[in-house]
Nucleic acid binder design. Structure first.
Lengths: 226, 226
DNA sequence: TCTATTCTTTAAGGTATTATGAAAAAAGTG
DNA sequence: CACTTTTTTCATAATACCTTAAAGAATAGA
C-alpha cells in the first residue's frame, strides 16, 4: 500500500513517514499542493494525506484538482478549526479530515479505515480483535473485554492499552508513550502516564496491585506482558 | 556513517569520539557553533551532536542555521533543565535532545535510532536480540533470557550485561564501566560494579560462584566470555 | 606458607522511582 | 450554561533499587 503525505512542515512529514513505514506502508512525500497533484498522477498512491495550509496551492484546491482524474481516498489535515467550516460547506471530494494537532494513532486508524473501505469490494469485514490472556480488544467497536465481560474504557485508556498490546513485551518509557499516543506536539506531565496505567490496571487486572499484564519495568517504563 | 560532535568541553568530546569510533562510526569534532555550521557544509556528516552552550554561536542558533541548507539529523545536548523549555517548542529543527549529564549508552542508542529512522526506507524493525551461550537479551523489551527462560533484570543490570555482551571477550576496568554505563561525570564507589556483577551472576549463571560467561580478569576488571 | 592485594558476599541505609489518593482542569453533553 | 465524564496535575505513601561499608574468601607473589 502506497501512501502520499503532503505538508509543508518537514518535521511533521518526517514523523508521519516514520510511523507509517513502521506500519508497513510505502510512503512518498511532498511539500506543496502542486507537488501533490503531480505525485498523484505520477505515483498513483493508494491514499493521500494532505495539509490544507500549504504554499503554491492549498490543500482544498489540490484536492479538487486531483478529483478531476482520480478518486484515490484523501485525508485532509486542518490546522485551525476555522478551516473546518470551509470543509463542511463545500464538497471537495475529501474522504476524511483530521484537525491538528492529532495523534499518530488516530491518523493510522483513519488510514486503515479508508483503505479497508476502498478495497471493501473483495475484503470481508473480519472481526477485528486483539487478545492476550483474559484481556481482549474489539478494535472496531473500541470495546475492551475482561474474561469476556465488557469493560468500559475511556478513549485515552483504550489508546494506551491498544498500543501496549500491539507491541506486547516491549517496554516504552513514559516519554515515548506521550510522544506516540498523545498529540505529537504536546508534552504533558510525565506522571499522566502513570495515572492512565493505574486506571487500566483497576479496570483490566484481576489484582491491580499485582498486575499480570500491564507491567512496570522499573526505571524504564511500562509494557504489556504476553 | 560520519558523525559530527561539537562541544566546547574538550574532555567530553574526546570521550564521545572514543566511544563512537569504537562503535565503528567515523567521527569529526568541533568546539563552537560557527565551526559546527562550517563542518556540516564541508563534511556533510550523517548525524550531528551539538551542545547548546557554546562560545561564538550557541547550539540552537547553529541548529537553525544548519537547517537552512541541510536536514541532517541533529541531537542537542543541554546542560541545564531550564534550556529544556526552549527546546520544547522545538522549531529549531532538532531531532532529539539529551540532558547532561547523560551516559554514553544512551547517546549511542539515540544515534542508532536516529540513523535508523533517517535511513528507514530499507530497514524493518527486526527482532532485536543479542545471544551468547545460554544467555540472550531482548533489546526491545529489555528482558534477559537464561536457557530461554525469562529473567528479570533491573535497568542498570541490563545496561551492564548489554554492554559487556556487545563487547564480549574484552576486559573493562571498573573505572571504565563506571564511565560508560554510569553517568560520565559521576564517580561512585568502585565496588558498586562488583555488586552488580554479583547480581548478574546470580541471575544469569548456572553456578554463580564458577561463572562461565561473566568473568573476572584478576587485577584488571570484568568481561563477558564468548 | 605467609602476606598483601584483590575480589566476593552480605546487609542495611539512603535515594530514586512508582503507586495511590484526591482534586483541579478540561472536554463533552444536553 | 450547568452538569457529567474524562484527563491532567499534584502531593504523599510505598517500595524497588543502588550504593556503601565492612568482613570474609581467593589469588598472586615473596
Amino acid at each position: 500500500m502506497k501512501i502520499l503525505v503532503v505538508d509543508d512542515e518537514a518535521l511533521l512529514v518526517k514523523g508521519i513517514r516514520f510511523n507509517l513505514q513502521n506500519e508497513g506502508y510505502e510512503v512518498i512525500t511532498g511539500s506543496d499542493g502542486l507537488e501533490a497533484v503531480r505525485l498523484v498522477q505520477e505515483e498513483s498512491p493508494d491514499l493521500v494525506v494532505l495539509d490544507v495550509m500549504m504554499p503554491n496551492m492549498d490543500g482544498l484546491t489540490a484536492c479538487a484538482r486531483i478529483r478531476e482524474f482520480s478518486d484515490v481516498p484523501i485525508i485532509l489535515l486542518t490546522a485551525k478549526v476555522d478551516d473546518m467550516d470551509k470543509l463542511m460547506g463545500f464538497d471537495h471530494g475529501t474522504d476524511d479530515y483530521l484537525t491538528k494537532p492529532f495523534n499518530i494513532l488516530e491518523l493510522k486508524a483513519r488510514i486503515r479505515a479508508l483503505l479497508r473501505r476502498a478495497g471493501s469490494s473483495e475484503k470481508k469485514a473480519s472481526a477485528n480483535t486483539l487478545s492476550i490472556g483474559h484481556i481482549s480488544l474489539d478494535l472496531d467497536g473500541r470495546n475492551a473485554y475482561k474474561h469476556g465481560v465488557l469493560v468500559d474504557l475511556t478513549a485515552k485508556e483504550f489508546d494506551v492499552v491498544e498500543f501496549l498490546m500491539r507491541n506486547a513485551n516491549r517496554v516504552y518509557s513514559r516519554e515515548a508513550l506521550l510522544d506516540t499516543i498523545w498529540t505529537y506536539e504536546y508534552r504533558s506531565d510525565i506522571r499522566t502516564v502513570d495515572v492512565h496505567i493505574r486506571r487500566l490496571r483497576e479496570k483490566l487486572e484481576d489484582a491491580p496491585a499485582q498486575p499480570k499484564y500491564i507491567m512496570t519495568k522499573w526505571g524504564v517504563g511500562y509494557y504489556f506482558r504476553k
